[in-house]
């Protein structure tokens, strides 16, 4: 066998080994990347005591709320921020694992904001916040490439985890809160009772 062909075979072997290792790692690490979200509701859990926020956690939630505003391209009112804070606090008692998720998100976006010259994400200007949101949202968690890249370094794994788990969780919470509905002109939204006869007449609209 010529030296040229031997080199080629060795290169192929190395590539195959690298791909194999990456796939193996992906399978091995998959459970670490995504914690199960489908916990069955126990009626007892519904009455779990409310969590008392530490000063650090209050700051974390402020950062997370500011991130939600940037994610949806909206300036949040004080009413919006209060409602989101209430709901996020509830999630901490309903699913304690979220403490870690919110902390990881706040630490990452604060660091990115400092890299961009701001004192932190909350203090960053609108363009800086948008740029940070872009960095996270450009990861497409549905692609194999993203999943494989997530295994290369702990940093990438953290990005992937935030994009694939924390962001969808926050999107869900936002969509089912009153915030988007108030922005659309609604005074009532799913989960808030009223009179069904309302639907016989035109509603208010902000768009």
């Amino acid at each position: 066998m010529s030296t040229e062909r031997r080199k080629l075979s060795r290169r192929r072997l190395l590539i195959l080994a690298a791909v194999g290792s990456a796939v193996g790692a992906a399978i091995w690490l998959k459970p670490m990347l995504r914690r199960g979200r489908s916990q069955q509701v126990s009626i007892a859990d519904l009455n779990a005591p409310a969590v008392t926020l530490t000063r650090d956690m209050e700051g974390t939630l402020d950062t997370v709320i500011t991130f939600i505003g940037a994610l949806f391209g909206r300036a949040l009112s004080e009413t919006d921020r209060t409602e989101l804070r209430e709901r996020l606090t509830e999630t901490l008692s309903q699913d304690p694992g979220r403490t870690q998720d919110y902390t990881a998100l706040a630490q990452l976006i604060d660091r990115l904001a400092r890299d961009a010259g701001a004192a932190g994400f909350v203090m960053a200007n609108s363009a800086q916040r948008s740029s940070i949101v872009d960095q996270i949202m450009r990861i497409d968690p549905g692609t194999l490439r993203s999943r494989l890249l997530a295994h290369l370094t702990p940093g990438r794994r953290q990005y992937y985890r935030i994009r694939s788990t924390t962001v969808p969780d926050l999107v869900w919470l936002y969509r089912y809160s009153g915030v988007p509905w108030r922005a659309r002109g609604y005074e009532r939204w799913p989960g808030v009772p009223g009179d069904w006869h309302e639907y016989l007449t035109a509603g208010k609209t902000n768009s």
Partner: peptide
């Protein structure tokens, strides 16, 4: 309360499964 929990946490489409 089940509804509020579902609106906060999401998870499966219906909140009363046994994964």
């Amino acid at each position: 309360k089940v509804l509020r929990r579902y609106q906060n946490l999401g998870g499966l489409y219906f909140p009363w499964q046994y994964p």
